[in-house]
Design a binder for these strands. Structure first.
Lengths: 216, 216
DNA sequence: TTAGGGGTCAATCGCAAGGATGATTTGCTA
DNA sequence: TAGCAAATCATCCTTGCGATTGACCCCTAA
């Protein structure tokens, strides 16, 4: 039985490349592609896939993590492998929490990718060794009384963080999110407190360091 | 005569994808690949290429723009096509100044890429329409008395930019550089004006986007 | 010598940002 | 049903930021 794969990536060239490689393999077949999170969810609803290869960095309101969460919620049998170029920790946990079974870096060796797909199809996880070592370190750093050093930001707080990392002012953020500036300030304040940051500039730096925002 | 192409991208999958596509075409041949700016310069010195496909986002001390500059300097006959996912203006001008003949976005249609390569081989430039429109806008914004929109920053201004990109306040910067806060403010203001940025947060974002600071 | 650029600093002004606090509504869950 | 977290908005207050202007020193190219 061939493994049916849904390929999600906003870059056509990347999709072509991955598809070209996967087609040379037996037992794996890319049966559909999607260029956005929204499209991925749609495709997942139309047909069954064994494995979804999901790029984390995608434009639009629905990013890879949200799409992963949604797909896993609606189709628990589909396994999602997250592919990203972010080496940072902060992206790993959200992805795993969203239901991704494996977390790969984009410069993964093609053979490892194939391996990850085969394992995902039978419910096995694969972690890039570099990622794995970071997870270990992260886990080591978690103390008892400090269970939530990076308490999850709420949706809105995360929205605000992303926009700050784009260089937006409170007024612009308010306009973008269609809420009052007072509300934006509240979210900014709460976000800064949760992340232990001093001001919006540090938040922007943090976001870039952690890979919260993409370079495109 | 087939066009000899050097493929520069730190992601193996991307190289494979582009190579796979280009090999389906007549008259274009990927004869070498490089995974970093340094390697690209080395390869360029070992053999002749008609066109270099250069990814801007690469790790290491030598980024795509620097590599482009170097290659153009040493081998004026090699044309460099810059490929990036940056939609921002700021990257376009440095790339063009560095000697890139064309500037493409990564989600370019494969056929357009092929076209760009063929044209580059005969010295013709191709600009993505989205990029072109931005250039127009930028040029429209340039005034007579403002001939150098991207004047090089002075040493001090650059120091200040780096520290802002580290999340430092004016007072902290003053302390670090052992100068008065007034002076810091002067530098900040001049730097923002030269880079056409609105505030320090945008400067921090700019710095991260441009790779002024690195996350390793 | 003079003009210009860079670096330094200060005074002033207006505004955005951020902290603190309280209130309301909504939706989920124990 | 009661409780709770999230989201929304407002008010008050303080401070950091950025613009502007003017000044002085030093160095270099014309």
């Amino acid at each position: 039985m061939t493994i049916k794969v849904l390929l999600v990536d906003d870059h056509k060239i990347v999709r072509q490349g991955v598809r070209a490689f996967l087609q040379t393999l037996n037992g794996i077949s890319v049966v559909a592609e999607a260029a956005s999170g929204t499209e991925a969810i749609q495709k997942a609803g139309e047909a069954h896939f064994d494995v979804v290869l999901m790029d984390l960095e995608m434009p639009g309101e629905l990013d890879g993590i949200a799409a992963t969460r949604q797909i896993r919620k609606e189709h628990p049998k589909m396994q999602v492998i997250v592919v990203t170029s972010h080496h940072q920790d902060e992206y790993i946990f959200p992805a795993v929490r969203a239901g991704a079974i494996s977390y790969l870096l984009k410069d993964v060796e093609p053979e490892e990718l194939a391996d990850a797909i085969r394992k995902a199809a039978v419910g096995e996880a694969v972690l890039d060794s570099r990622v794995a070592s970071r997870i270990i370190k992260e886990l080591q750093g978690i103390r008892q009384d400090d269970v939530n050093p990076f308490t999850e930001l709420s949706e809105r707080e995360f929205d605000v963080l992303r926009l700050i990392a784009a260089g937006k002012s409170n007024a612009e953020i308010a306009e973008t999110l269609v809420i009052g500036e007072s509300t934006v300030k509240t979210h900014v304040g709460n976000m800064l407190k949760k992340l232990h940051l001093g001001d919006r500039t540090q938040a922007a730096v943090y976001a870039w360091q952690q890979g919260v925002v993409r370079r495109d």
